[in-house]
Design a protein around this nucleic acid. Structure first.
Lengths: 246, 246
DNA sequence: ACGGCAACTAATGTATACATAATGTATCCC
DNA sequence: GGGATACATTATGTATACATTAGTTGCCGT
């Protein structure tokens, strides 16, 4: 793995975890010493993070960690729901060959089997997250437009906006089971809608599905009594397992 | 202006104009000689263009010009309509103070005055494009979410997906007048919908508004008899005036 | 003749030295 | 004492030399 990617990952993690607080100016030489590499890969990583939106230009030169309010996270989640909705609507309206839905159906079946097994151990949740991510991958693959996929990749890199973000409140045990069941029902509805070429329905479910993440985020925020969500260590701890930082 | 920005702009123009054809591998040393700068600003520009989606990674290393099919452009335009629709819907549902709509209304009034003046000279079209861009800026400013704005900036950098893209067929003189009138009606509808807090209506009009660009694109493609739209010199000639390449 | 391995070539990845611009401080003048 | 200017400091912007890796070509062996 190249130094640039290394630095990129570590910097993203440091930003999302709050170790680098919002507004913090990122100095190239300081980061260079911290990671033990030259300024070159640092600069590359900073440029990429700025393009991703995690950093903002600080004054005339240099970058600073962008502040993420709860509203920004709501915005990101809403944007993901909207874009996924568009992709699924167009896939449904265009129509997809029957066999193309098979991978998504497999995901649903395997998830059913997993959820039927018993209490929600951490390991089970981890496997669930993999299956959930896989389902979203498969279902979005039904829409070919690469611009939308590019935008969705961007959204996934925003704090708490990935398809797995809705499990951040999973430690709220008495509710987690319900949340999983609701998500499964959404997944089933999406597949069914696409099969029946019901574009508007597919879009509506996708949006409602994204709202699950919103609800659990707000639950988590209320429980933790946090005003600003991103850069909060306790939330990030929950978030970390649900997301690939690459 | 820094060398990096210089190279970035020139490279973007070369890509969009088709001077650098799709699939062309971009070698740092070659570009370095071409622009008379070192590899460093070249690399920075390449990274940014890749993040924007105009380049793709070529094999294990290096970048190549991404191919843009007509479908990709449709995808980008649809994405813009969808995201603007979301922003306007949420703005309408939340409600905006009455005075906030004034700038947009001013744009509409000034555009009315402009269109009433007479035949569509090039200079008039240029002023129209400025007013149109300004209207979109003002109306989107009613929604504060920065993620959506980030995504929209991305879309605007895709070929022919900017808010001004719908005028690329303006040389089809007998239709341009109608197109302008339709666009104006959309603008009026959007403002009215937001004023009345009709979120769904605002969203629907925004989507239909983006479809104008799609229609004129297809008209232009049919006239020019082009299979691939991006990287086509004649289309770019039309496109150039309607877009800031910065 | 064909396939595989090795060396060479040319590209990107990285480090560092240098240039330039911005910012903060200190001093001097008003 | 306050403000402005000049200088010093520190940052980013750029150039270049070096490292490393991937791709290609040619040679050798089977």
């Amino acid at each position: 793995m190249s130094q640039t990617v290394n630095v990129l990952i570590k910097l993203r993690e440091a930003i999302l975890s709050g170790e680098l607080p919002a507004g913090e100016r990122l100095l190239e030489v300081a980061l260079s010493k911290r990671f033990g590499v030259s300024r070159t890969p640092i600069r590359t990583a900073l440029v990429k993070l700025a393009e991703e939106g995690l950093l903002e230009e600080a004054g005339n030169a240099g970058y600073a960690v962008r502040e993420f309010s709860e509203a920004d996270i709501r915005d990101a989640i809403e944007a993901r729901g909207t874009l996924e909705g568009m992709a699924l609507r167009l896939a449904a309206e265009t129509g997809v060959p029957g066999h193309a839905l098979q991978p998504a159906k497999d995901c649903i079946r395997r998830t059913d089997a997993l959820l039927a097994k018993g209490p929600f151990t951490d390991e089970m949740v981890s496997r669930y997250l993999d299956l959930n991510a896989e389902f979203h991958r498969q279902i979005l693959a039904l829409y070919p437009g690469f611009v939308v996929h590019l935008l969705l990749e961007r959204v996934d890199k925003m704090p708490f906006a990935s398809p797995n973000a809705f499990v951040i409140a999973r430690k709220n045990a008495d509710r987690s089971g319900k949340v999983f069941a609701i998500a499964q029902e959404h997944h089933r509805g999406i597949v069914d809608a696409i099969e029946r070429r019901q574009g508007t329905r597919a879009e509506a479910i996708a949006r409602e599905h994204a709202n699950l993440a919103l609800q659990t985020l707000e639950t988590a925020l209320a429980r933790e009594n946090l005003s600003s969500a991103a850069g909060s260590a306790p939330l990030f701890e929950l978030f970390h397992a649900s997301s690939r930082l690459t």
